[in-house]
Simulated scan of single mutants.
Amino acid sequence: MQDLTRDDKIAAWNAQAAAIRARLAPSGVIPTTELRARTPEAFFQGINDGELPPPPMNELIGFLAVEWAPGRFVFQGTPERKHYNPMGTVHGGYTATLLDSCMGCAIHTRLEPGLGYTTIDLRISYIRPMTQDTGPIRAEGTVIHIGRSMALAEGRLYDVDGKLYATGSTTCLILGR
C-alpha cells in the first residue's frame, strides 16, 4: 500500500471494515461453555463469520477485529466526536480500550481451548492526540511471552500512513488451569 494515496489507503481500510461488518451478527455475550469449547481460531472466526455475536463493547466503542494469527491481533476503529474529552481530542480511554483489547486478544490466540485471561497490568504511552479528522486507526497487539500463569504482550496504535499514536504493554493472568 506504499504507492497508494492516503485517501486510497483510507478507502481500502474502510472497505475491509465494511465487508466484515456486513457479516457480523448483532452484538451479544457468548455463553462461557461455547467459548471454552472452541479453539481461539474457531472462536474469532465464528465472530467474524456472523456465527457468534461480537462483544457489546465493540459496538459501544466502534471497533472490530480485522486480522489475527497466533500471537497477533488487529482491531480497527475510527475516532469520532463522541469519543472526545473536554479538551476537544479523543479521550485516552478510547486508546487504552483498543490497545487493551488487541493485546488481550493476541494472548487469547495462543491459549488452549478452555483457558481464559484477564488484564492485571496495562501501561499506555500516548504519543500524539487523535481527533475525528485522524481517520481510521488500527491497534495491533503482539504476544511477547506466554507462561503457565502469566502472559505479556505489546501493542501499537497507528493510522493508514503508519503514524504512531500510542504504544502499550500488558500483563495478563491466565485463567482456568
Rank of each mutant, 00 (worst) to 15 (best):
H83K: 10
Q16R: 15
H83L: 00
G71L: 03
E34I: 13
Q76N: 11
M57R: 09
V90H: 00
V66Q: 13
L4C: 07
P31H: 12
T39R: 12
F73R: 00
A65S: 12
E59Q: 14
M87K: 09
A37V: 09
I61K: 01
E59A: 06
G50W: 01
N58E: 15
S27Q: 10
A22Q: 15
I30C: 07
A17G: 13
A25L: 10
T89A: 12
R72Y: 06
L64V: 05
P40T: 13
T5N: 04
F75E: 02
N48T: 10
G62E: 02
W13G: 03
T39S: 14
R23T: 10
T33K: 14
G77A: 09
L99F: 02
P40S: 07
A69Y: 06
Q45R: 15
N85F: 04
A65G: 12
K9H: 09
K82F: 01
R23I: 06
P53W: 00
Y84H: 05
P40Y: 04
N85W: 01
D8A: 14
W13M: 11
M57T: 11
A12L: 13
T89Y: 00
A12C: 07
I47W: 00
I61C: 01
T32S: 14
P56C: 07
L99D: 00
A12I: 06
V90C: 00
A65N: 14
A65L: 12
N48I: 11
R81C: 02
R81D: 05
